[in-house]
Design a binder for these strands. Structure first.
Lengths: 245, 245
DNA sequence: GAGTGGTCTAGACCACGAG
DNA sequence: TCGTGGTCTAGACCACTCA
C-alpha cells in the first residue's frame, strides 16, 4: 500500500520521464498541486522532497519547483594526471576558474605532505553545461611548482587547460591515488552546484605524486551524485602474485 | 538564523559525537524529545530525518530511533581482481553467501557480453560487522568458468574466499573496469543494508576480463555511502604521451 | 503587493513491535 | 494491550522573487 506522497511522487516522476512536463519547466505551484491531488500542502511537499532527493526537480524559493535537465551523466575517467570530465562530448561545457594564493592548513597539509602555511596555489573550477553546474573542483599545487613566469591566469581559460599545461612540466612517472566517497554536500557545494543539500555528491580526492614521492597536486572534485559516474580501468599486465591484502 | 529542526539536529549530533548518547542506544521517544525541545512532533521528526540522511541514526518502526554504530569506514581497494573490502582490519567481518544458478537477462547480458539466457552462477554476498551490514555484493560468473567439480558451496564460507579461489584459475593478465556511482538504494538494498532509503549508497560495478577480452566476472557492489570509501591507485610507469581524451 | 516556497503547529489516525 | 514510529491534516506565519 503506497503512501500518498509516494503515489504523487511516482505520478510526477512519470510525467517528467514522459516529458509531459519538460525539462526546465516550472511545476504548478504547491498549492495547485495539493489541490489537484487532494492532499494537504505538507503532504505534497514531502512528495516533492522525494523527487528532489532523486534529482528530478530543483526547488527555488519564491520562484517555484523546476524540472531539472535530463540526467546527462558525465563520466570521470580515473587514473589520468589531468582533469577529464566529459564523455558526453557534445556538451557545451563552460568552465570558470578562480585562482588564489593561499597557505596550507588543516587537511591540505596532510594531503600535500607539506608543512603548515607553506605556499600553495588554489584553482577553484566550476563547470557548467548550459545552466546546470556539473562539477566543482578545488585544485592545490605547491607554489614552487607553479611556473612563476607564466602570468597567473585570471578568469577566462579553461581550468583543464591550465592544469594540463602544468602536467607536461612534471616528471612523467607519477602515482595517482584517487579516493572516492559519497557524502552530502556542504552548504557551499550545494549552492555552487545548485543541488539540494539532501542530494548526495560523488567526491573524489585525487593526489598526484611524482617519481620521488613528492605530491605535486591535490584535487578535491565534487559532482552531483545523480549526474556523474567515475570509471577506473586497471590492466593487470604483470601478475602481482600474492599481493593480496 | 538556523531553523528549529537544524538546531535540534545539531544538538543531537553533538550528543552522539561526544558519546553522551552511545552507539547502539535508543533515543528517547519522539514524543519525549518533542516535549524536551518544545516543538511539535512533525518538527522533531524532520530533525531526526536529517540525522538519518547523515547516517547518524537508524529508525525502527515500533521500536525507536537508534544511534548507529560509529562510522567505521571501510575502504574498497580498486584494481584488484578480488573483492577486498576491509582495511579497518580489526573488524570481525562475517559474510554470508547465497549461491544460485541463473540465466543471463537484461543488463547482465551487456555487462558479461553473453547472449540472453546463457547460464550464470550468482553469488549473493552480504557482509556484517557485528550487527551492522557493511556491504552487499552480487557477483556473476559464466557457468562454464565455474569449477564444476567443486561442490557449489552452500552458505558457510566467505564469499571472498570463494571468489578468490576462482581468481587463481583465471588467466593472469586481465583488465578490471570499475564504475563508481552514487544513487539511492533500491528498497531491497535498503533493507538488506539496514539503511534509510534516503541514505545514498556507493555502487561499484566491476567487470573483469581475461587477456582475450572475455568477461570472466561481473560484480555489483553496494556500500552504505557513509561507511565506505573506494581507493584507486594508478602508477604511471610509462609516459602515455598524448593519450589525453 | 501578489505569488511563491519554507517552517511550524496541534492534533488525528494507522502500523508495527513486544509483552 | 501499550508504546513506538509513520502518515496526514488544515491551517498559520515567515521569507524570497518579481513586477
Amino acid at each position: 500500500m503506497p503512501s500518498r506522497r509516494h503515489g504523487i511522487a511516482e505520478d510526477l516522476r512519470n510525467q517528467i520521464a514522459t516529458c509531459r512536463i519538460k525539462a526546465g519547466e516550472r511545476l504548478p505551484s504547491e498549492a495547485q498541486l495539493a489541490a489537484r491531488y487532494m492532499v494537504s500542502t505538507p503532504t505534497l511537499r514531502s512528495a516533492l522532497a522525494v523527487l528532489e532527493r532523486e534529482g528530478f526537480i530543483e526547488k527555488i524559493h519564491g520562484k517555484g519547483n523546476f524540472v531539472r535537465h535530463p540526467l546527462r551523466k558525465i563520466t570521470y575517467v580515473g587514473g589520468r594526471g589531468t582533469l577529464d570530465t566529459r564523455t558526453a562530448a557534445e556538451a557545451p561545457l563552460r568552465v570558470t576558474v578562480r585562482t588564489a594564493k593561499i597557505r596550507a592548513r588543516g587537511h591540505l597539509t596532510a594531503l600535500l605532505k607539506v608543512p603548515t602555511s607553506s605556499p600553495l596555489t588554489e584553482f577553484l573550477c566550476l563547470s557548467h553545461e548550459g545552466e546546470s553546474p556539473l562539477s566543482l573542483a578545488r585544485i592545490y599545487v605547491p607554489r614552487d611548482l607553479m611556473p612563476a613566469t607564466e602570468p597567473v591566469l585570471g578568469e577566462s581559460p579553461a581550468c583543464e587547460m591550465a592544469v594540463a599545461r602544468f602536467a607536461v612540466l612534471r616528471p612523467p612517472s607519477a602515482e595517482v591515488r584517487e579516493t572516492v566517497s559519497v557524502r552530502l554536500p556542504t552548504p557551499d557545494e550545494a549552492s555552487a552546484l545548485r543541488i539540494s543539500s539532501a542530494l548526495a555528491v560523488l567526491a573524489i580526492t585525487r593526489v598526484t605524486a611524482d617519481s620521488t614521492g613528492r605530491v605535486v597536486e591535490a584535487a578535491l572534485l565534487v559532482f552531483p551524485g545523480d549526474r556523474a559516474d567515475a570509471v577506473f580501468t586497471t590492466h593487470h599486465v604483470i601478475d602481482e602474485s600474492g599481493t593480496q591484502g
